[in-house]
């Protein structure tokens, strides 16, 4: 089928200002938007730049705005978006070149929530695994799925307003550890997320939940964090 692909372009070494370029392509409706970008780069303009790796929605490299919504280019098919396609970089992070944005503020926020397992108690005497029931494991399953693609955080108006807001992805990571029955640093993390740059900035807009390519119920997870800070209980 014939599609018109409009791509946000900005080359800081050449352009004073960003612009769009439009490409008419003959493609299959089952092709990924990433396939189209590869085709443009391969045959039309080698300078087009974007990040990608796994090409099937698990590495988180190619989050971008496709027809105005945050999606992974490798997990969005032509037939999902129609024959008029506009591709733009994520909002709220500085554009470096074309579809590549500066991810550092995003990862800096991630690093603020103690994004690692903490349990300084002695290991079980038999040296084996710490026990955890299937129900305890299920409690935080949802938030283990995060691939740090930034689709959620860069869809959030509070993050657009200020990138010192931790943002949904960092809160999801905090949730993953706070609700893990084996972890011992829940109260420290709850303290971090309840500071002014944390939970209070979430106004339950649901953009993050809509944007997540892993279908994580982010707003629900943030709600559980809010409840935990109010009650002081994690359960």
């Amino acid at each position: 089928m014939q599609v018109t692909l409009k791509i946000f372009r900005y080359n800081p070494e050449v352009d004073k200002k960003w612009h769009y370029e439009t490409y008419d392509l003959d493609v299959d409706e089952k092709e990924r938007i990433l396939d189209l970008l590869e085709l443009v780069k391969g045959h039309h303009d080698g300078t087009l730049s974007f990040r990608r790796s796994c090409a099937h929605g698990v590495c988180g490299s190619d989050a971008m705005r496709i027809n105005g919504r945050n999606m992974l280019a490798c997990k969005t098919l032509v037939r999902d978006v129609g024959d008029k396609i506009t591709v733009e970089p994520l909002l709220g992070l500085k554009v470096i070149k074309d579809l590549i944005v500066d991810m550092e503020p995003f990862f800096d926020n991630y690093k603020k929530v103690l994004p690692y397992f903490i349990n300084e108690s002695p290991l079980p005497a038999d040296g084996k695994e710490r026990l955890q029931s299937p129900e305890q494991r299920a409690r935080f399953d949802e938030t283990t799925k995060c691939i740090l693609c930034a689709a959620c955080t860069t869809s959030c108006p509070s993050f657009w307003a200020s990138d010192d807001y931790l943002g949904p992805a960092a809160l999801v990571t905090a949730h993953r550890f706070i609700f893990d029955s084996r972890d011992e640093a829940a109260s420290e993390r709850l303290h971090i997320v309840s500071e002014t740059s944390g939970l209070a900035r979430c106004h339950t807009v649901f953009n993050c939940t809509m944007a997540c390519p892993r279908e994580i119920q982010i707003t629900k997870a943030i709600g559980e964090l809010k409840m935990a800070t109010l009650t002081g209980k994690v359960d």
Binding site: C54, V58, C59
Partner: peptide
């Protein structure tokens, strides 16, 4: 970025 590595697949 390390979390993009192919082990994740």
């Amino acid at each position: 970025y390390p979390t993009r590595s192919h082990t994740g697949a």
